[in-house]
């Protein structure tokens, strides 16, 4: 799955390389900057993968945690070991969190790498019109990857909870992915404005705040608090469901 994610920036870079110049203001954000500066491949790839590809992979990993073991019939053997259900749940979530941390990093670094190979690398223009050195730009790129990792933690907690509900891993994966899409659709409807700050996907595309000069940390903080809330609620739900569950498989 990490390879599939890494293919996104490669595809973008190759497509821009072989096609003619992209007029500004068309296509995903920053696409027109790639030809001038390869580092933007990483940013563009993250913009492209946030709405679907990253939630998709996270949904697959998080949905598989408990339901996958149950589906294979290995869950009861895991619970026979004197480790306890709580510990199993925590380890499973930690595994998901590790994937969530690595996935955007892979997109960012592959993007920066392929961009540096195919296009010139120079000072990076920020959204504010200021320019920074490539070294600092890589730091910003890593910051965005960290931002996306935090953003997806809430979704992975939801996936963990759904995974405790069922023995069919595919169902848990699909439900998690569908939830992420539904949340984004709701977030796009202005009529539901009062609901927006509570949607876990609300801050997903606000990582542009890290590309301003000076950096605006408001979205980062708001996002961290929101995702923490989702982890607490769905972590508690998963815990309650899992310790009361009759494990038959």
């Amino acid at each position: 799955m990490l390879c599939a994610l890494a293919a996104i920036p490669v595809l973008i870079a190759v497509a821009v390389r072989v096609s003619s110049a992209v007029p500004p203001g068309r296509g995903p954000a920053f696409l027109d900057r790639i030809a001038q500066n390869g580092l933007f491949v990483g940013v563009t790839a993250m913009v492209v993968s946030v709405p679907l590809f990253l939630p998709l992979t996270v949904g697959v990993v998080a949905g598989d945690t408990i339901a996958g073991e149950a589906g294979l019939g290995t869950l009861r053997y895991l619970l026979v070991a004197p480790a306890g259900r709580i510990r199993l749940l925590i380890v499973k979530y930690a595994g998901t969190a590790l994937f969530v941390l690595v996935a955007p990093l892979v997109v960012a670094l592959t993007g920066a790498g392929i961009g540096a190979a195919l296009f010139p690398v120079g000072p990076v223009t920020l959204l504010s019109g200021d320019t920074i050195e490539p070294g600092e730009a890589v730091v910003r790129l890593l910051l965005i990857a960290a931002y996306l990792a935090v953003s997806l933690l809430g979704l992975s907690a939801i996936g963990l909870f759904i995974s405790t509900l069922t023995d069919v891993p595919v169902g848990a994966m699909a439900a998690t992915v569908v939830l992420s899409v539904v949340a984004q659709v709701l977030d796009a409807l202005p009529q539901l404005g009062s609901l927006h700050p509570w949607l876990f996907s609300h801050y997903w595309l606000d990582f542009g705040d890290l590309l301003r000069q000076p950096v605006s940390w408001d979205a980062f903080a708001g996002n961290a608090v929101l995702q923490g809330g989702y982890i607490a609620v769905f972590g508690a739900l998963a815990y309650c469901r899992f310790i009361t569950k009759d494990v038959l498989s």
């Binding site: 809330g229 607490a232 609620v233 972590g235 508690a236 739900l237 815990y239 309650c240 469901r241 310790i243 009361t244």
Partner: peptide
Amino acid sequence: RWLPAVAVPAVI
């Protein structure tokens, strides 16, 4: 045993 699942959203 479902108490935490109710308590956490209530606190939030």
